[in-house]
Design a protein around this nucleic acid. Structure first.
Lengths: 188, 188, 188, 188
DNA sequence: TATGAATGAGCGTTCATTCAT
DNA sequence: AATGAATGAACGCTCATTCAT
């Protein structure tokens, strides 16, 4: 994705944090994956935790931007809902899969200070969801309280990284439809 | 819950693993929480990982038993579904909240051997869900494939431990109803 | 050999000390070999080191007595030399093999105080050798200084536990003859 | 001998292993003797056991080379025998005294894998001895089977580190002569 | 005597971080 | 920027010994 030293570190770290967890990954592992010495990492990042924070921030920024773009092309509430589900599923099981898994899984490894920084960006992302859900609620497209529904959807989607395989019996598009049906048919 | 040394260790470990994660919790932390020396832990458990395994096994056994009891008193598919959702939500946000969070969150900290042992018990628990969902599918109570639906439900419920507060705007009973509606109304 | 608890402990300890060394053998290993709990060992011996000391003292006493008996039946210097070599070889490769290996191998694991106690008994044993060698020197049966020769012989014999196998190409009797020849033919 | 960090560690370890044994020597003892922190040891050696292995391998290599040089200047079987005894005695009571004592005394502390590595080098060294003894046997310089005689000599020489003192009543040269006489005069 | 839970000091080893080069 | 040796605190675990029962 990114050919700079910083980008290569982040990509390797994302992969390793996801595979072995944050604390079981050593800075030597990351450095070795990039092809440098562990001491050299500290010219690019002040600490191991800062690498983790950067992985998280980058992926949130990237997916927020992608979601904004998708929403810009969706012209009714139903289409917006589909766009949101599609984008979030894509982020969870697609290209940013590893960094997203890190975001969920390694959250507690981040100090409170750094959690707050990440949370500020996350909030912007969540507002996109809540705006669309509130609009859908007004039109009775959904009946469950937007705040609650957002959390139930987040659970379904984020959990899908533990089991969904695009080469399995259910396609990516079918999964989107299934979730959308669960969420909206309940409004009939 | 359990006044034996073993029980006290497991309860303290569950709490600490959940709060700080498995690797950030030291055996000295656990011992201190119980009021013994760290070396004494090893009279009860062969290793730190065995403590983690025991936390997981105990909570699966307990919740499998509770679910069986609830199912025994549910006499139609709809009631069974409600019983399952109630039990699992109870396990996630209620009394076994901490151990259940550990089960999900610390999974990768367990060696493959031990994962297999836990998985064997987990399979029994999942069979209970799949049996009920297959029965509900036959009656068109649900339309989504039981295997897929089980995973979507698991996502919603397990994620609820990150946000649900029984003292908040939504009660425990309302949450059960909401999930049940999402799952079954989609069948209309 | 000895059916008392003390005897069983000493026999098991000798075996384990020889096989794994003193520090790699735990009191739990010894207790398990005897069929008791590790705490119970301390009703018979004040410490692990005292067990080691007892193994050493017992084997020295036993072999000193055996040597005395053999010497009593040897009526000339040549026969006495043969008796000494035979007894010491027997102790090293025969019945007391394990305890003798412990005596040599685990010597440095003993505190200086305890070493002195064992050394006092060892001195009596060595006097038996030196008396016989001095007598042989007077008759020109040997030419090397008795004190030096005793050490060279001790080296040959004690080292034999690392390689001699009575079922191998050389018999026990042949080994005795070979050593005797090396020691006495040099006098011709 | 060697001024590199590696050399200083090996020298300190040899001294300590010899004085207190392998298991009673801690990595902190070794590090303190070298003047570094215990953790820093592990930049040079992967484990404590690897330090022991390196001590053994270094001393075998060194003494094999020395023996080869000495043999190259010995032009008849008698001279070769004297060269071998001189070199081995020198290694046992002279400059490499401590490492040689470690080689014998700490053997069982080495894992089987590492023992095999050391044994491979030791075999080369022993071949030097056996070649010379076989040649001496052909000329009736010795009568005892070379294989057996090698072991009796090894016993005498290795044991000498427990008692021989060059400042004592017997000189180094006299000890060599004494052993050579015992070994060769028996052939007359 | 025997038990077995508990102690507590110490073990080999790990690892994020520093810093002279 | 990059190196790599060094740090030093902390880790999981061991084990001889004690002692209430």
């Amino acid at each position: 994705m990114d050919d700079t030293p910083r980008g290569k570190v982040l990509s390797a770290a994302g992969h390793l944090f996801r595979e072995h967890g944050y604390e079981r990954t050593t800075v030597r592992d990351i450095a070795a994956a990039v092809g440098i010495q562990s001491g050299s990492l500290f010219h690019h990042f002040a600490s191991k935790e800062d690498i983790l924070k950067a992985v998280m921030i980058d992926v949130i920024r990237f997916n927020t931007a992608r979601m904004r773009n998708a929403l810009a092309e969706a012209h009714d509430p139903q289409a917006k809902l589909r766009a949101l589900i599609t984008c979030e599923l894509e982020s969870i099981v697609g290209d940013t899969r590893e960094a997203m898994a890190v975001l969920v899984h390694c959250w507690d490894s981040l100090s409170e200070d750094r959690q707050a920084e990440v949370l500020a960006l996350r909030k912007i992302y969540e507002e996109l969801w809540l705006d669309a859900l509130r609009e859908a609620a007004k039109l009775n497209l959904i009946t469950v309280d937007p705040f609650i529904l957002r959390r139930l959807i987040a659970g379904m989607i984020s959990w899908s990284n533990t089991w969904f395989d695009p080469r399995g019996s259910m396609s990516f598009a079918e999964l989107i439809d299934t979730i959308l049906q669960l969420v909206t048919r309940s409004a009939r």
